[in-house]
Structure formats: structure tokens, C-alpha cells
Nucleic acid binder design. Sequence first.
DNA 1: TTCATTGCAAAGTTTTTGCATCTTT
DNA 2: AAAGATGCAAAAACTTTGCAATGAA
Lengths: 137, 137
Amino acid sequence: MAKLKVGVRKTNQREIIYEVIKNSKGPLSPNELLEKAKENNESIGIATIYRTIKLLIDANEIIQVTLPDGQTRYELSKLDHHHHFKCKKCNSIFDLDNCPLSIPDQINVPAGFILEGHEITLFGVCAKCSKTNASTT
Amino acid sequence: MAKLKVGVRKTNQREIIYEVIKNSKGPLSPNELLEKAKENNESIGIATIYRTIKLLIDANEIIQVTLPDGQTRYELSKLDHHHHFKCKKCNSIFDLDNCPLSIPDQINVPAGFILEGHEITLFGVCAKCSKTNASTT
DNA sequence: TTCATTGCAAAGTTTTTGCATCTTT
DNA sequence: AAAGATGCAAAAACTTTGCAATGAA
């Protein structure tokens, strides 16, 4: 699993939580993490989820991703630079594997501002939902 | 102030809250709204802030803006399409008045996905902070 | 006067923390 | 055996809701 600081122990719960994040196709909320982690260890508690999230963020293994829906989610930090797509119908989040922004060429920031990074979220309807509801309106 | 539905009353509190949002240079959190609103009416309560936020969102006067820091903020909905800049040092949010993305030309979404909108947050250091801490590290 | 709105306090939610017990090293 | 990690339950932080009093129309 992830590399942790010295003195930090490798536990069953931490392995599970890390694997769940690693195998997910998009960022997960604490509750989603809990549910998926429970599939492997029924007794795992929400406090451990939150504590492990902090630990993994500290170790630079995962990052927090907050989309405009207000939900905080987490994903591996080592993924290539990418952004997210949120489907308005099924609310799923999809990772997109290309970044349309070349920084800083395309973005003008006010004088004196130092640009260091960016985050983009796209909204729309995913393939599955656009197929299903072709003429529902 | 904002146009409200029939039966909805114009009150001092609502006027104040709307003005605070209108006069802000960037989106505000519920607490920031409360503090600024109290400058005009000391007795205003947090419940009124939340209820008025809902009301104004319903009336399409304001929108919710959630940046990657996880904080939910609100701003006028009628502003030109724009994005936000968050200063890592002072944590202030600044509105940027240009949008670097032409949709959908520069963005490729998977086949079958329908792109409807986007949201961008830039991170860095604002002019004031970059001046102040020129050699602090 | 009528009825929407307000402030307060209670109730939900979500996240964090204390502590006794358990697990890793 | 020692020290870190866990689960539970309590606490804290953030939002929502019920209700009696207030204020707009």
C-alpha cells in the first residue's frame, strides 16, 4: 500500500481503505468509502475512515476533491493531471483523462497574482443516462 | 432587491443579505454573510441567513459555489460567466472576469457524454500576499 | 387582521476527539 | 511489552426545523 511515515503502522483497515480508493473509477466520499470498506471488514468504523483519510493526505497518497455539489471526495494523488465530469442525472463522477488548460498561457490573472494550479469540473449527462432518457422530457 | 415570488415578503433582513452578496467581490460563506449582515442589523440570526440563501437560490438570484476547499459559498447568479481564484495564503476568493475555456472545442468528453457546463478554480497567491511574503520562506 | 417571517433553541448531519481495548512491531 | 490504531460514544461544527412572537401587507 501507500508509503507512510516512520512509526505509522500498516493495518488491515488502512490496507482496505487504500485499496478501495485505488480501485475506484472516481473520487469517493467518506460514506462511500465506509460502505465499500465494510464489504471487506464489517466492523470498520467511520472514525477510522476519517483518520485514515487524514493519514493518506498527510502522506501525499490521496487528495481531497470537492466538486461544486459541495460533497468532499478523495482520490489517489498520483493520477495524471485530470478533471472531473459530473452527470446531472445519476450524480456519478467520472475521471476525465485530459486537461484542456495550458497554464498559464490561456488564463489571465490580475497583476501580481501568482498562478499555481487549477481544478475543473464539467457538468452534463453521461453516456448511460443520455441513452436511457433520450426522449423523457 | 431581488424579484421574489408572489406571497413572499420583502423584509429588512432579506434586503440586507441580498445587498451584502451584491456588494461582495467574491462568493461568501453562510458565516461571512452572517457577520457582514450583522453590521447592519445586530439581531439577525443564522437561521435567517440559511433560509434567505434558499429563497434567493429558488428565485434564481444567487447560486451556490463550492470550491475545492470544501467551503460552500454564494454569489449573484447574474454575473458574467467567470471563475474563481483562491489565495493559498489569505484564503480569499477572487472573481476572475474571463473564461479561458471555449466549450466544447477544447474539451473532449467520452463518447455519448453531453457537456453542459463547467466550473474552474485557480489556486495561487494573490497580489497582496505575494508582495508581503516576498522572501519569508 | 392575516399570514409570512424572524430569532431562538432543539434536532439533524457531518466530522472530530477521548478513552478503553486491541494489534502491530 | 510498548506504543500505535481501532471502535464506540461523546463532542464539536455546520444546517435545518418547530414554534411563539413579530412585522409586512
